[in-house]
Simulated assay, not measured.
Amino acid sequence: MANTILLALAPVFFVMALGYGAGRFGIVENHHVDGFNTLVMSFALPASLFAATASASRGELLVQAPLFAIFGGVMLLIYLAWYAIARLFLATGKVGASVQALTVAFPNLGGVGLPIASSLLGATGPVSVAVAMAAGSILVTPITLVVAEMGSLKEDGAVKTPGAPMFDALRRALTKPIVLGPALGILLSLCSVTLNPVIESCLMVIGQAAAGVALFLTGLVLSAQSFEFNWKIVGATALADIVRPLLMVAIVLLLPVPFEIARTAILFAAVPAGFFGIFFAVSYRLDSSTVGSMVIGSTIVSIMTMAIAIAAMFP
C-alpha cells in the first residue's frame, strides 16, 4: 500500500517541484506565463478531454453518468459555499470570489487526478478523469468565466445595451476551448460517432502534454508568489481537502451509486485544489497570490488526505 501511494503521489509533487524550482532560480521566467497558460487551457487540456471522451464508447460513457452527476453536484455545492463565504464574510469582489470558489471546488484532476487514476484504475482511469473534468468544465467553470467576462466588459466599457453584458459574457464563456472540448467529445460519444484514428492520434500527442505541463506551470506560478497563511487559506484548505471528500462520502452512502463509481468519486474529491483558478487569475490580470496560497496549502495537506483515501478505497 505504501508503494502504491508513493507511486501515485511522488510524480505529481516531483513535477510541481521542478516548476517551482525553475521559477525560483530564474531558469524559467515566472512572471510572464501567458504562453504556458494558453498552451494548457486552449490546446493541451481541451484536446486531452475531447479525445478521451470522444474515443469512449457510448456504453462506457453512460456507465460514467453517475460520476458526472454526483461529482458535478458536489463541485457546485462547494463552489456556492465558498463564493457566499468570500462575498459575505471576507469582503471579496465578485470576480475574485468566483476565482477563489473555482479553485476550492474544482480539484486538480488534470495534474494530480490523471496520473493517480491511471495508476489505480488502469485503462478506465483516463475516461473517468475526463468525465469528472467535463463535469467541472461544463457545470462550474462557465460560472466563473461569465463573472470574469462581465467584469472585463464593464471595465472596457464595450457594451452599453442593458442585458447585453450577460449575453456577451455567456457567449464568450461557452466558446472557450476548455468548455467546448469535453462537451463536443461527450456529444460525439453519445451519438455513437467514431473518432477517426488519425485525428485521435493527433489530439493525443498534444493532449498527453496536459498533465505534465499543467503541474509544471502550477509550480512555476507558485514560485513567483509569497505564501499567505491566514484564516482564509485555512478555511479554503479545509473545505477542499476535508469537507469536499466527506461530502462525497455522504452522497454516495445516501444514493444508490455503484461501488466502482463511488470509490472513484471519493478519490477524485480528495484531490487537492485545482490550478484553474490560478490560470484564470493570470488570464484576467487578477492577484493570484491568494488562490496560489490556497493551492499550496491544499496540495500539502492532500498528501495526508489522499493517502487516507487511497488506503481506504483501494486496499
Rank of each mutant, 00 (worst) to 15 (best):
residue 111 G to E: 07
residue 103 T to R: 06
residue 51 A to I: 00
residue 255 L to I: 03
residue 117 A to K: 01
residue 271 V to M: 15
residue 74 V to W: 01
residue 140 V to G: 05
residue 124 T to I: 09
residue 23 G to R: 12
residue 92 T to I: 13
residue 138 I to F: 15
residue 70 I to E: 03
residue 37 N to A: 15
residue 142 P to Q: 01
residue 64 Q to I: 05
residue 305 T to L: 11
residue 240 A to R: 15
residue 195 L to K: 00
residue 238 A to W: 07
residue 265 A to I: 02
residue 284 Y to F: 13
residue 91 A to N: 15
residue 39 L to A: 13
residue 138 I to H: 08
residue 85 I to Y: 10
residue 245 P to V: 09
residue 179 V to M: 11
residue 99 V to E: 10
residue 34 D to L: 12
residue 178 I to K: 06
residue 254 L to T: 03
residue 259 F to H: 14
residue 75 M to W: 03
residue 190 L to G: 10
residue 29 E to K: 13
residue 286 L to V: 05
residue 261 I to P: 07
residue 293 S to L: 07
residue 140 V to F: 11
residue 211 A to H: 05
residue 144 T to K: 01
residue 207 G to Y: 00
residue 203 L to K: 00
residue 157 G to V: 01
residue 247 L to Y: 06
residue 201 S to G: 14
residue 13 F to T: 03
residue 286 L to K: 06
residue 104 V to Q: 11
residue 222 L to R: 09
residue 214 A to I: 07
residue 174 L to E: 07
residue 49 L to W: 05
residue 28 V to K: 13
residue 290 T to G: 06
residue 106 F to A: 03
residue 2 A to H: 06
residue 81 A to H: 08
residue 254 L to Y: 07
residue 31 H to L: 08
residue 92 T to W: 08
residue 229 F to W: 15
residue 5 I to E: 02
residue 115 P to F: 02
residue 143 I to D: 07
residue 68 F to Q: 06
residue 162 P to F: 04
residue 44 A to P: 11
residue 62 L to I: 13
residue 245 P to M: 04
residue 34 D to Y: 11
residue 30 N to G: 13
residue 272 P to L: 07
residue 209 A to W: 07
residue 183 A to K: 05
residue 40 V to L: 05
residue 244 R to S: 04
residue 8 A to R: 06
residue 146 V to P: 05
residue 216 F to I: 13
residue 108 N to K: 12
residue 8 A to D: 02
residue 86 A to G: 12
residue 170 L to C: 08
residue 8 A to K: 11
residue 200 E to C: 01
residue 37 N to I: 05
residue 41 M to G: 04
residue 117 A to Y: 02
residue 2 A to F: 12
residue 99 V to H: 09
residue 203 L to I: 00
residue 185 G to V: 01
residue 272 P to E: 06
residue 92 T to K: 14
residue 270 A to W: 06
residue 149 E to N: 09
residue 137 S to R: 12
residue 16 M to S: 09
residue 62 L to A: 08
residue 291 V to S: 09
residue 307 A to G: 05
residue 23 G to N: 14
residue 179 V to F: 15
residue 60 E to D: 05
residue 8 A to P: 08
residue 173 A to T: 05
residue 276 F to K: 08
residue 191 C to Y: 12
residue 147 V to S: 06
residue 152 S to V: 00
residue 48 S to M: 15
residue 192 S to G: 03
residue 40 V to A: 12
residue 23 G to T: 13
residue 199 I to T: 02
residue 58 R to D: 01
residue 208 Q to C: 03
residue 152 S to Y: 02
residue 7 L to K: 07
residue 114 L to S: 00
residue 139 L to D: 04
residue 219 G to S: 12
residue 44 A to H: 11
residue 38 T to N: 14
residue 308 I to M: 15
residue 96 G to H: 03
residue 126 P to K: 00
residue 125 G to F: 01
residue 95 V to I: 02
residue 18 L to M: 14
residue 301 V to N: 11
residue 126 P to M: 01
residue 247 L to C: 10
residue 18 L to D: 14
residue 28 V to H: 13
residue 93 G to W: 07
residue 72 G to F: 08
residue 154 K to I: 12
residue 292 G to C: 12
residue 287 D to P: 07
residue 288 S to T: 10
residue 124 T to E: 06
